[in-house]
Nucleic acid binder design. Structure first.
Lengths: 239, 239
DNA sequence: TTGAAAGCGCTAACAT
DNA sequence: ATGTTAGCGCTTTCAA
């Protein structure tokens, strides 16, 4: 008990005893057992980051930030790679619930993730959605203003004189892709530009896929070819 | 006890009872408490990956592979970013020991990590060193043949006719840097090429550092400038 | 200021 | 085939 008080700096303890305990801790290389602590406190001090691909530099930066802050606050961070795969995501969710995470940061693989997220919420595990929203799920979210940023971006290209602007987008069951696509078409229309089917490509957000799309666009006959390409994911810079 | 047996599929149980238990589990949304289990079993089913920078695509690939395999085997993976910082690394090691990881994959921040690794070993936690060795630490390791690969690489440049080959290296208390540096100088000498101090640069493996080094090399007077640069880390491609 | 008792949820070992 | 006892290492509560 006295040891517990020293470690948690709780309650009153004489300097002598504290010193004695601290010395013993050092000598024995004593490290408290987190499992026992969790058993009582019902807190695991573990957060989970469920993302679709750690290999994508966008998520890598998120992972970096999450890990950094978690560490600062005395938490550990579990890394979960869903691979844009709803099943893998589902398996992870069960694992996380059973291990008693204190909270989960999620980049949902798609709108199909709805039931997974619901499960977390049902088990009273705090959830924060990152980057992608999910319809009908109401919880804290960190998302960006895709509509506005896409508009600015397309308008910039238009101002540069581009009229054939292609888009390489993600699948349309992902919120960010929908929002960007809608803003892309809206902005083009607004500026009196036509929307060309052959300039609209959809990838599955996997590696290499963006490359293939670029190739496809570049192999169009010259008069059909885009003069600018707007890609909604960042694999090009990466390759 | 009977419930425990059903869940762990251990011991003999009548079909009736099993059914009854399983139904109750479903109805109550029961999920076993991992903390209590860990407390007894002394196993957490958690592995840890201690790397220096998740933002570096080299480690990102390692993380991806580790996470994938861990998940397959029913383990979770804790992500620890040491930031090439021995203190942060040390804090993490304590955290990991206290949380009872079942094993740790480590890319040591430098030879100063020795005492950290020793601590893990002293606490009977299995350790695997990745990419970087540490002198006088004997444990499982996954490393590459830096001597040979560097030699091949430099010889390739020499065959291309380069005589002023610069090296942008990591700090010399990291095993990979030492091995690559030694092989670099040895190979140059072996081919009768001189070793130029101004063509040998050392970075701290942080972002932007490689860029600065490249700039420094390119701003040398033309007759001192290298015709080829060998960089031992992969931040150039990344930027 | 310190210590003793009890219990968190689970399982190993021993009954029944 | 099922149940009981005890104890994992810690903290909450109550006593000294």
């Amino acid at each position: 008990m006295t040891v517990s008080r020293v470690i948690n700096k709780s309650g009153k303890i004489s300097d002598k005893t504290r010193k004695k305990v601290e010395d013993a801790i050092k000598e024995l290389n004593y490290i408290p057992n987190t499992a026992a602590k969790s058993l009582i406190s019902k807190k695991s001090k573990i957060l989970s980051l469920l993302i679709t691909d750690i290999t994508n530099p966008f998520y890598t930066k998120i992972a970096r930030g999450a890990e950094d802050k978690a560490m600062q606050m005395g938490y550990r961070l579990i890394l979960c790679n869903s691979d844009e795969n709803e099943e893998k995501e589902s398996t992870y969710i069960d694992m996380l619930i059973s291990s008693g995470t204190d909270g989960v940061l999620v980049t949902a693989s798609s709108d199909q993730s709805k039931k997974n997220i619901r499960k977390l919420i049902k088990h009273n595990i705090p959830v924060v959605l990152i980057d992608r929203t999910i319809k009908e799920i109401y919880c804290d979210q960190v998302i960006s203003d895709n509509e506005h940023t896409t508009k600015k971006l397309i308008e910039h290209l238009i101002q540069q004189g581009h009229e054939r602007i292609a888009i390489i987008n993600g699948p349309l069951d992902v919120s960010t892709s929908i929002e960007r696509f809608d803003s892309y078409t809206a902005t083009l229309k607004q500026h009196g530009l036509s929307i060309n089917e052959e300039l609209i490509l959809e990838t599955d957000l996997k590696h290499g896929d963006t490359d293939n799309s670029v190739e496809k666009l570049l192999s169009l006959p010259e008069n059909k070819r885009p003069t600018a390409i707007f890609t909604t994911n960042n694999f090009i810079a990466y390759h």
